[in-house]
Amino acid sequence: MTALIDDVRCEALFVSHLQRSQEPTAEVIRAEVLATVDRLGEAGCAELVAQEFGEHPDCAIGRMRWARTAVRFAFAA
C-alpha cells in the first residue's frame, strides 16, 4: 500500500507547478502534492505523467527522479 501512495505522491509532484530550482521545503512539497491530487485526482495525475513522458521523455526522466527524491524527503516517516 505504501508503494502505491508514494507513486501517487510522485506523480502529483511531477505534474505540479513546483520546480526543483525553487528548492522547496518538505512542508511546501507536502502541500503541493495534496493540492495537486485534490485538483486533478489520482487518475488525472497519472494521465499527465504519461502525456509528458510521451511528449518530452528526455525532460520527464529527470523530473521524475527529482519528484521521487523530493517525496521521500518530504514524507519520510
Rank of each mutant, 00 (worst) to 15 (best):
M1N: 08
T2Y: 13
T2L: 14
T2W: 13
A3Q: 11
L4S: 09
L4N: 12
L4R: 11
I5N: 03
D6V: 10
D7R: 15
D7I: 08
R9E: 08
C10Q: 15
C10P: 01
C10R: 13
A12V: 08
L13G: 01
L13A: 04
L13P: 01
L13S: 00
L13N: 03
F14G: 03
F14Y: 12
V15T: 07
V15S: 04
V15G: 03
S16I: 10
S16L: 03
S16D: 09
H17V: 15
H17F: 11
H17C: 12
L18T: 02
L18A: 09
L18V: 15
L18P: 04
L18K: 03
Q19Y: 05
Q19F: 07
R20D: 09
R20V: 07
R20Y: 10
S21F: 04
S21T: 09
S21M: 09
S21D: 10
S21Q: 07
Q22L: 08
P24D: 10
P24K: 10
T25Q: 01
A26V: 03
A26Q: 06
A26T: 01
E27M: 11
E27S: 12
E27C: 11
V28A: 15
I29V: 15
R30K: 06
R30H: 01
A31L: 12
A31K: 07
A31S: 12
E32T: 14
E32P: 05
V33Q: 06
V33G: 01
L34H: 09
L34Q: 12
A35K: 13
A35L: 05
A35P: 05
A35H: 07
T36C: 11
T36D: 08
V37R: 02
V37S: 01
D38S: 13
D38K: 10
D38E: 12
R39P: 04
L40M: 05
L40Y: 10
L40E: 08
L40H: 14
G41D: 00
G41R: 11
E42N: 10
A43H: 08
A43W: 06
G44P: 02
G44A: 00
C45H: 01
C45V: 04
C45I: 00
C45Q: 02
A46Q: 03
A46P: 00
A46C: 00
A46I: 04
E47F: 04
E47G: 00
E47K: 06
L48I: 04
L48T: 00
V49T: 01
V49C: 04
V49G: 00
V49W: 01
A50C: 03
A50W: 01
A50M: 10
A50Y: 00
Q51T: 12
E52S: 15
E52C: 08
F53P: 03
G54V: 07
G54F: 05
G54Q: 09
E55W: 12
E55K: 13
H56V: 07
H56E: 13
P57E: 05
P57C: 07
D58H: 09
C59S: 11
C59M: 08
A60N: 12
I61A: 15
I61E: 10
G62R: 09
G62K: 04
R63L: 12
R63A: 14
M64D: 14
R65F: 14
W66D: 05
A67L: 08
A67N: 14
R68C: 09
R68T: 08
T69P: 05
V71N: 02
V71A: 00
R72P: 00
R72C: 06
R72F: 03
R72S: 09
F73I: 02
F73S: 01
A74S: 01
F75P: 02
A76Y: 00
A77R: 08
